[in-house]
Each structure stands twice: as C-alpha cells, then as structure tokens.
Design a protein around this nucleic acid. Sequence first.
DNA 1: CTTTAATCAGACAAAAAAATCTGTTTATAG
DNA 2: CTATAAACAGATTTTTTTGTCTGATTAAAG
Lengths: 145, 145
Amino acid sequence: MTVIFSKKCEYGLQAVLYLSAKGIGEIVSADEIAKKLNIPKEFVSKILQSLTESGLVNSKKGKAGGFSLAKEPSKIRLIDIVAAIDGLGMFNTCVLGFPSCSPDHPCPLHEKWGSLRSSTYNMLTEQTLDELKEKTLNKIAHLEA
Amino acid sequence: MTVIFSKKCEYGLQAVLYLSAKGIGEIVSADEIAKKLNIPKEFVSKILQSLTESGLVNSKKGKAGGFSLAKEPSKIRLIDIVAAIDGLGMFNTCVLGFPSCSPDHPCPLHEKWGSLRSSTYNMLTEQTLDELKEKTLNKIAHLEA
DNA sequence: CTTTAATCAGACAAAAAAATCTGTTTATAG
DNA sequence: CTATAAACAGATTTTTTTGTCTGATTAAAG
Ligand code: SF4
Ligand code: SF4
C-alpha cells in the first residue's frame, strides 16, 4: 500500500512541526526528535541534514548542537517541506499512471481527481507552521501516553 | 516520491478500465492489455490474476482465453479495485505517519486533511466503471499517438 | 491427437525505499 | 587541553516494490 507521502517526507514533516512547536530560536538535537517521535535517529538526522541544505532548517554542530528552523514558522509552508523531500511530481503526474496528460485527451479521472488534487495542493500551500503549533503540541504531548 | 496508488494499483485500474471499455462480455488477453497500455505483460497478468481471486474479473484459460469483467460495469466501483490491490489502509492511517489517531489527540492536519481524504474516498466510491467508459475510450485511442 | 496460445503457480532478479553503521569533524563544557 | 556530544559524510544493509523467468495446466483449432 502507498500513501501520499514517502516515509522520509512524513518524518520530515513531523520533525519540522516538532521544531516549530519548540519555538523559533530553540535548538533541538536529532536524538531528542527521534526519541520523542519514535523515528529512527540516523534516519531523521539524514532528513534534517537535507532540509538544512534546502535552507528550511539551520544546524549547529558540536556539543549542544542540533537543529532549528531557518525562518519564522509563519514563513514556512507545508508544501515547502514536501517539495524539498518528495518533490512536486505527485501534483503533475497521472493518478492512474498514464504516461502523458494532454488536456485534449485526459485520463478518465481527470475531472474528479484533478480538483481534489488542486485542493490538496492549495491546502499544503496555505498551511504554515505557525498555524499548526497548538495542535502539534497537543499531539506530541500525547504521543506515548 | 510516492503517489496515492502503488504501481500495481495504477496498472490494475488501467486494465480494468480497459476491460470495461471493451464491453462486458469481451474476453481480452493479458498480452493485448499489456501492449495497448504499455505495461509489462507478466506484471499485468499477475495483477489480473489477483483481481480474479477477488471476484472482480473472470478468467478463461487456454487458447482464445483471457480476462473479462465479472460484473456489470455499473456494479464495479473504483474503490473495489483499490481495496483489492492496495487495501483501504490509506484512508484510515495518518498522512503524517503518526502511529495512532485518537479523536481527542488528532494530528495537526486532521481537520484539513481529513475532509480531503473523505472527498477522495467518496469519489472512488461513487465512480463506477460504466460512467468512465467514454473517457477511457478517448484516452486509450490516443495513447501512442 | 497435436499444435498452439492462453492462464496460472511460484521462484527469481532488479530497483527503489527505508534504515543502519562507521567514522570524521566540530564545538561546548569541564 | 581533554572529554563529550553533537552534526556530517558516505558506505552498507535490509526490506519492499517492481518486474522477469520457467514451467505446468488448460482449452481451442486444425
Ligand atoms: S488529467 Fe487524467 S491523465 Fe492527466 S493527470 Fe489528471 S488524472 Fe492523470
Ligand atoms: S487525524 Fe491526524 S493523525 Fe489522525 S489520520 Fe487524520 S491526519 Fe493523521
């Protein structure tokens, strides 16, 4: 079975939400994130490194080092994280896997699926981290309860 | 990157749409389907075999054998094919990959994502093969043009 | 009855995704 | 200055998904 996002992307979103819940300046280690979110440490570490390259996250090396958001939470949209990790291919390739999507010969689901896909894209584009902070805190607090 | 459906499911949907476009009685070989849809033959063959087990498709062995729909196109919903191949897990697990989804501590995207997911589910549940026949024919006709 | 063309069963192989390991560099704290 | 704890780099392993191969069975057609 396959869901919308890759595992990498899911973890990436979780981690960034975690960072934003901690506040803009806070530096958090990959180890802490991994433990709190029950994600393999080395894996989330890799993902955060790649997000650092993408400029969404800052990293600090050495003891007491870790990761923090590179921008204000209100400036980071969910789509930015998705784009950095999974790319935006899912928004312009065919749900049914047909090779090309010409407007004159669209696949049978074009009409119905197309609008759902746009809605999803818009949702990810509109949602910024700051708007999700409270809900994130609530979720995190009750993760291992 | 990962899209909604697995390759298996995409091919399965394509193949079943192809069958329905041919008409209810028509028997079509895996070979023809593979060629027309540019899908690996052995792979689509396996998929159709599994759909046969699921009761959505009939198979006929031997020379002049092949596959056909097991029910009227109006009785086969897209969700049936998805359920048979990928399962319905994608409709009740978390987009963000959080392990549990308790209604009191939903993940940060619950509200927004939940409704999109329901819409997708409903769309797949409402769409039956007969309604897609014309569009499928149009798509197939222009596949290798 | 024999040839042929198909499903079917199940092992196998290749590729991609997910996860782990090993070691290096870097900065803080004592 | 040394010990420690972190990111970082990159190789390696494991697992899942995707795709292929071999042979057996079945049924139609000549
Ligand atoms: S138009 Fe149809 S073929 Fe094209 S991407 Fe949308 S669903 Fe797929
Ligand atoms: S409520 Fe949140 S945690 Fe649960 S499935 Fe929906 S998106 Fe995921």
